[in-house]
Design a binder for these strands. Structure first.
Lengths: 344, 344
DNA sequence: TTGTATGCGTTATCAG
DNA sequence: CTGATAACGCATACAA
């Protein structure tokens, strides 16, 4: 649709297309006057390079793929939001994708991104080792990749996460110190993060001489946050109640479930925190307004996004420079905010 | 990076590139056997067409630009989420952008999308008539555009919104019938939707013989939901209190403020709904869990997203077909869910 | 410093 | 039905 091209400029200015291209690309081998003339004309006629031709020629884009499990999770939303903020001043454009925790959808997204020849990718994988081969292939072929959040993954690259076990350890310990002994742990899919978080939980129990109970690990797998996981949660709690094993505290190790549990407990006429104390794992700024205000383990999301972007840019800039695998894992600290849901 | 191209297939199969192209594009002028052979080979070697070459040649893409004010608003988030869902089975890819309610950022996004030669755009404009000229230009030049949510806008095209005044009328009326007489109306930027919503509010007052008070229209403009609008809200309410004009009910006409008001009232030690009843305007599924559970006017978001996508596909398919301006405005019905915050 | 020629991968036009 | 050829807009090696 854009009528003004390098060729048309060349004709209008009685120059060759090559010269126009050089002027536009700020080449050194061009006379200052000519360059200025071209630039002026280009600006006046609102020249916009054809991305597709440019890319076809150079094999490069300014696109950054962002692959996450869900958009409708406070953590990922905040992450993307911040990513947009830091990417804006740069020349890069974000192309977000959701995987719904499914490797097949993730593969689709990655193949598409490869086809779009994206300059780099920031990803929180669907699960441990999902699409490792594909990611490795892309990574080695000049498309740098940054892993975040779910960093237990086979790919060798920069990884940005939090120290999972430390936070759940502290949250659990806090509850133990308040006298809670039957603490359940709520988690989603069985991925690396979950394991670490469970480890922290278990260690806290161990160090405080409280026996670990297999029944208190509540897995609720889901591929869509809109599923009827409320019902599943309710069922699981009902089972525990029937076994006379109703917990007196719940630590959540995952985002989506952290808020749903409030509603579920409410519908079962269980009081929070009197009957069951709750500490969630989420970044929603609504935590203060919930009934009751929800204690939360919060990730340094914006910091993570900023770091992810910076590391990616660094990798993209250095091209196939060193090739040396000097990749690092960044483990940031999460913070727990204690609110009413875990008091008493 | 993709090594397998039409040319390479042609060489391998001892055919011409033209034939391969025809086979791949399901042309009629090709022998069935040849086509099958090509397709089999392509599949086996995982052929993926080069988007850029294809686009350079055809001048078309499968990209759909999505331009919204904020991602971090429950309504827009739900909209995009649903959009992804309906767009997935199709061959289209979404390219989302945020404008932060700023026309300049919106322009940036639109120019980028134009440069990317997107096949169509779904947009909730930054404000009335923002970038009208640019949008018109793109629209006329073969890039169909669908307006949603903020449909008071100069562009002639399909528009999808809700019947704003009707819902605020009913919400206001409900409060009036419960005996509330000093009802304030909370709104954001002064755009078309706001005006309609205020109209519904005013009409309800009028029909129930309650005088309209200018002070009860509370504008809180913002360009970023993370701004300190809590403080501004607090200030405004403090002013009303000083004037001895503290309302006994608040209807919110905008998303972001709907939840913040709960926290602000709480920090002022104002009881909800005893002192002030509140009805929000938001789609968050957390409404049930808030303290207190928040009555909300909810938009049929998923329906809107689905319709937007379908209408856009229709326009994109018909090319520069008729050119007839047979555009419609779709006004869907919102529903109000009454919860504790407006009881008594 | 500038121009000419070539090709990126694809589709379209024309012959055969 | 198939093949040769040109062209999309751009960047670059090479020639001038």
């Amino acid at each position: 649709m854009s009528e003004v091209t390098i060729k048309s400029i060349a004709k209008a200015l009685d120059l060759s297309p090559a010269t126009i291209s050089r002027a536009l690309n700020d080449s050194h081998e061009i006379k200052r006057a000519t360059k200025d003339r071209v630039l002026a004309y280009a600006k006046k006629h609102n020249y916009r390079p054809n991305t597709f031709a440019k890319n076809l020629k150079t094999g490069k884009t300014n696109l950054i793929g962002v692959v996450i499990p869900f958009l409708s999770s406070p953590f990922f939303l905040e992450f993307i939001d911040e990513l947009y903020r830091v990417a804006l001043p740069s020349n890069y454009t974000l192309v977000p994708f959701q995987t719904q925790n499914q490797e097949a959808m993730e593969k689709e997204a990655l193949l598409f991104l490869r086809q779009q020849n994206v300059a780099g990718i920031i990803i929180s994988p669907a699960h441990e080792n999902s699409n490792v081969a594909l990611l490795e292939d892309m990574h080695l072929n000049g498309c740098p990749i940054i892993l975040f959040d779910r960093i237990q993954h086979g790919l060798q690259t920069h990884k940005i996460g939090i120290h999972n076990s430390m936070e759940t350890y502290q949250a659990t310990e806090t509850l133990l110190k308040k006298g809670r002994k039957r603490i359940a742990f709520l988690c989603g899919k069985d991925i690396g993060n979950t394991k670490d978080r469970i480890r922290g939980y278990k260690n806290a129990l161990l160090n405080h001489g409280v026996a670990f109970l297999e029944e208190y690990i509540i897995y609720v797998d889901y591929q869509d946050p809109n599923q009827a996981i409320d019902e599943e949660l309710k069922t699981r709690l009902g089972e525990l109640k029937d076994k006379n094993l109703l917990p007196d505290a719940i630590v959540s190790g995952t985002d989506t479930l952290s808020i749903k549990i409030l509603g579920v407990l409410g519908s079962l006429a269980i009081r929070i925190p009197e009957d069951i104390a709750v500490i969630g794992f989420t970044n929603t700024n609504l935590a203060d307004y919930l009934a009751p205000a929800l204690s939360t383990i919060q990730q340094p999301t914006q910091e993570m996004a900023k770091l992810a972007f910076e590391l990616l840019v660094e990798l993209m800039d250095k091209k196939s420079d060193s090739g040396a695998a000097d990749y690092k894992s960044f483990l940031l600290a999460a913070t727990t905010v204690y609110r009413k849901s875990s008091l008493i």
